[in-house]
Design a protein around this nucleic acid. Structure first.
Lengths: 191, 191
DNA sequence: CTCCAAAATCTAGCGGCGCTAGGAACTGAT
DNA sequence: ATCAGTTCCTAGCGCCGCTAGATTTTGGAG
């Protein structure tokens, strides 16, 4: 027997679930993931700590949830970068959009690639936004496959983008060469 | 006035300094960096916690010290991979050695690239093993520069290697394509 | 050999962490 | 109006990084 009241509660619960995810992300954006503690998060949503644990198994699951939303956003970014572009331009657009995303959303990118504990990835069980985002890369790289295995090419190209994103942000590459790296990478990939 | 006893103490102090670094690394190798707490580390070296702080400003400085030794080891690995190889083979050797290093020393690689807080990098003040290791990469990539800026090429190639190393270890690339990625990357870089 | 300042080291504790047991407070069908 | 069931909070556990202050050890001077 499901009463209207139960429906309302379920709705409120779902809202609070999203509130937790959003608050974690905002806090991470503003002060970094180190500042995202269960106590501060609980304060921010105006509930006590144990409420968090009625929504998520542990703190890692909250980060995973943020990461998953990050992949959905990345998917949209890549998709709209590729949309309506001539085949020859797709790789440039997608690669540029990828690096811009990583640059503009550092906390989110960290959640997706450094902190997310165990989102399944290279398997069929991988969450769909994640597979779809990789699919966007695949499509862009396919243009330049030229007989090579598209999947391998995409993984290698993605690795290069990911490496550029992380090493750049860690200040391990020369700032003055910043604008020359992506063009050169694209050159390599197209050849 | 410096007495012999003071010299002995200084020597013992230096030994203990290295003991802390080695113990931190062993503990990280065996159980991951999460297990490296100041308490457990103090137990392991058979001194109390505050002794750690008479050698290092904070826990981060210990990790940095481990990372720095890691760069020295990486330097040696890359150097001996390149040594005595024909120009045409240097890139393959160095790239393979790099990925093997990352694969075989995951905790060390983490210290160097994920945990190390603020080793200066792209600047002249960067520690020498670090600059030298990059120099080995530079030399290997120079062979295939073909008119392109060697520095930019090296940074891009290094990013690709770093991306491959990290994404592979996070299980974000398809295991069955593992052996095809490096050859394809080398193909791109040579072209 | 004894003394005793200086150096080395430890004990104990602070505030904060992730997480949870157990009880209080609220809700809503009867 | 009652009261089972649900929701939520208080309080606390064991751990963390780090440090103040007491204690022990050291080794040159008398």
């Amino acid at each position: 027997m499901t009463t209207p009241a139960q429906h309302r509660r379920e709705r409120e619960r779902a809202q609070r679930h999203q509130l937790i995810i959003s608050s974690a992300r905002e806090l991470a954006d503003a002060e970094g993931w180190d500042a995202v503690t269960t106590r501060r998060l609980a304060d921010r949503i105006e509930y006590s700590q144990p409420v968090l644990y009625s929504h998520f198994a542990d703190k890692g699951a909250i980060i995973d949830a943020v990461a998953l939303q990050g992949f959905t956003e990345l998917l949209e970014v890549l998709r709209s970068a590729r949309a309506g572009r001539a085949d020859a331009d797709q790789l440039d657009a997608v690669a540029g959009a990828y690096l811009t995303f990583a640059d503009e959303q550092p906390a989110l990118y960290d959640a997706m690639f450094t902190l997310a504990s165990d989102l399944p990835f290279g398997t069929p069980e991988a969450p769909s936004p994640l597979r779809a985002a990789f699919g966007e890369l695949l499509a862009a790289f396919a243009v330049h496959a030229a007989g090579r295995d598209v999947h391998v090419l995409t993984e290698v190209g993605w690795s290069a983008l990911h490496g550029l994103a992380t090493l750049t942000r860690a200040h391990r590459l020369r700032p003055d060469l910043r604008d020359q790296r992506l063009p050169l990478l694209l050159d390599l990939l197209r050849a």
